[in-house]
């Protein structure tokens, strides 16, 4: 139970998550009516969101996956660890992310995808954290905007843990800062 001890406050319950995913799915279905988007899921965090989101779509779609190498000392440039199998030329690509914060990864990804000549590229992220943004990237759809706090669950991990939680939590913060921030949001119920 050591892992659970690191969890902090509840940020979004499974009901809140399900409701927003449904709403965003309906919005995407409206926008893509008459088209067949390619859902491009960025591994690994976005898988949980992508599965739930795809179930809410009323338009036909294709799905594919990409993985980028995380930053680590010794690796000079980001590398594509898993590329898409589907040709992107002429496709309406919808990039599915778990969270967009600094925008550095997404900025790289979008510049890379542009070179495959898709008809359109849009971004759908489960969470949007504009307070940490460095690279300007447009997020067309998102479920929740969060302040500058570190969250886990619903695909988001800490060192590989907590991905499978159906809710979103903060990591335990002994300073109590996260609790204060969440209170301002009208949140902060303990797990």
């Amino acid at each position: 139970m050591i892992e659970q001890a690191r969890l902090g406050n509840l940020v979004f319950s499974r009901e809140e998550v399900a409701k927003r995913v449904q709403e965003v799915g309906a919005e995407i279905s409206r926008d893509y009516e008459g088209r067949r988007p390619l859902l491009l899921v960025i591994l690994r965090g976005a898988v949980y969101f992508a599965v739930d989101l795809s179930r809410t779509l009323s338009v036909p779609f294709d799905i594919d996956f990409m993985a980028l190498s995380p930053f680590k000392p010794g690796l000079q440039r980001v590398e594509i660890e898993k590329d898409v199998d589907t040709p992107l030329a002429g496709r309406d690509v919808l990039v599915i992310e778990d969270i967009v914060d600094t925008g550095l990864t997404l900025n790289f990804l979008l510049r890379h995808l542009e070179k495959r000549f898709p008809r359109s590229i849009r971004v759908c992220s489960f969470l949007n954290c504009p307070g940490r943004r460095i690279a300007e990237v447009e997020i067309h759809y998102f479920c929740f905007e969060i302040p500058d706090i570190y969250v886990v669950g619903y695909g988001l991990d800490f060192k590989g843990d907590f991905r499978n939680l159906p809710e979103v939590y903060t990591l335990y913060d002994p300073t109590g800062r996260d609790t204060q921030i969440l209170k301002k949001m009208g949140k902060g119920g303990k797990k």
Binding site: P73, Q76, R77, V78, L104, N107, F108, R111, A135
Partner: peptide, 9 residues
């Protein structure tokens, strides 16, 4: 700076 280089910024 290394992070920025990593993402080609």
């Amino acid at each position: 700076a290394r992070i920025l280089d990593f993402y080609n910024i």
